[in-house]
Simulated assay, not measured.
Amino acid sequence: MKTIQYLTLALLMLLTVSLQAQDKNDIIITNDGKVIQGQVLKVQEENVVFTYPGEAIENTMSKSNISKIVFKNGREQTFSQGAKAAQPPAEAVGAARGTENAAGEKPTFKVEQNMMAVLPLMFVNQETGELSEQNSKNAQHMIHEFYEKHSTNIRPLALQDTRTTNSRLREAGVNYNNLDEYSIEDLQRALGVEYIVFGEVTYTTGQSNISSTYGNVDQKKKSDNKSDTKVSGSTYSTERTKFDYKVVVEIYKNKDKIYSKSREPFGDTDDSWQSAFEYLLKRTPIYQK
C-alpha cells in the first residue's frame, strides 16, 4: 500500500514540474540589452527562429544580434558576440519593460549602424484635423512590408521589426499623435537605429456622381433613306466618396534628412495613397534598382 502511495506522489511531482516547465518561455537576450520571451524553434547556422507567446508566426533574428539564449529548461547558450552586449541581463529586463532609471529617464539604446526603423505615419483628415491610429499603423506596416519584399534593393540596411519599433516608442512616451514633437536624435536613441523612415498622409473627402443610362434605341427608315432615331429608357445616378490625398516621405540618417518628397496619387479611392508611397519609396537614395 505504501509503495502505491509513493508512486502516486512521485507521479504528481513529475506532473507538477512538467506543467511548470510548459508555463515558462525561452528568453533571448540581444546585444543591445533587449529581452525577448517566446519559444525558440530553431538555432540555425546564421539565424535563430522563434515565436512570441500566444502566436504561431515564426520570426527570424540573426545570431550576430544575440548575446545569449536562456531556454525554459534552464540551459543557456551564449554566442560569440555576447561580449558586445550593452547592458547586463538584469538591466536589460528592466529596459524591455519600460522602467525608468534612478534619474527618471526613459530607456535608450545604442544606435546600431545600418539599422532602419519605419515609424507610424501621421494620417490626418485636413477637414477635421482628426488623426487615424488604425490608418497610421496600416501605412507603417505597408512601408515595412515594401522594404521586406525589396530587401535586396536596400542592402546593407536591415529592418527593425515593427513590434520592436512600436514597443520602444511606447516606452519613450511617443505615439502617432505626438511624433512631430520629438527630435530625430531623440527618436534614434529611443529606437537604437541609424536610419528613420517617416511619412505623412493628409487628405480631404468629397462626393462624386456616376450616371448610367439604360434603355432601347429604335430606328425607323424614312422615304428619303434617312433614319429617325429614338432613345427611350432611364438614367440612374450613384454617389460615392472620393479621397484627395497628399503623401510625404522623409528619410533621416542620424540627424540629417537625406530624402524628402511629396506626391498626389492619380486615383481618388480610399486606398490610392498606397500607390503614391510605392512610387516615392522606389526613388529614395537607399533604394538601389
Rank of each mutant, 00 (worst) to 15 (best):
I154A: 02
K106I: 05
M116L: 13
Q207D: 08
Q140L: 01
G173T: 07
V193H: 12
I184V: 12
G199R: 07
D161L: 02
M116S: 10
P120Q: 15
I210G: 13
S212F: 09
Y203R: 04
L169R: 00
K137H: 13
N178R: 06
T205L: 00
L179E: 05
F198S: 14
I184W: 04
F198Q: 14
G192A: 09
E127T: 10
H141N: 15
S212G: 13
T162W: 01
T152R: 06
M115N: 15
V124H: 01
G215K: 12
S151Y: 11
A139W: 00
L131I: 13
V124R: 03
V193Y: 10
Q134M: 11
T164F: 02
F123L: 00
M142F: 15
E185I: 08
S167G: 11
Q188F: 06
T165W: 03
P107Q: 03
Q160R: 09
K149E: 13
A172D: 07
Q140G: 07
N175F: 00
R189W: 09
Y203W: 05
N177A: 04
L121G: 15
S151N: 10
I143L: 15
N216Y: 09
L119S: 13
N135Q: 14
P120I: 15
H150N: 15
E181L: 04
T204K: 00
G206L: 00
N125D: 15
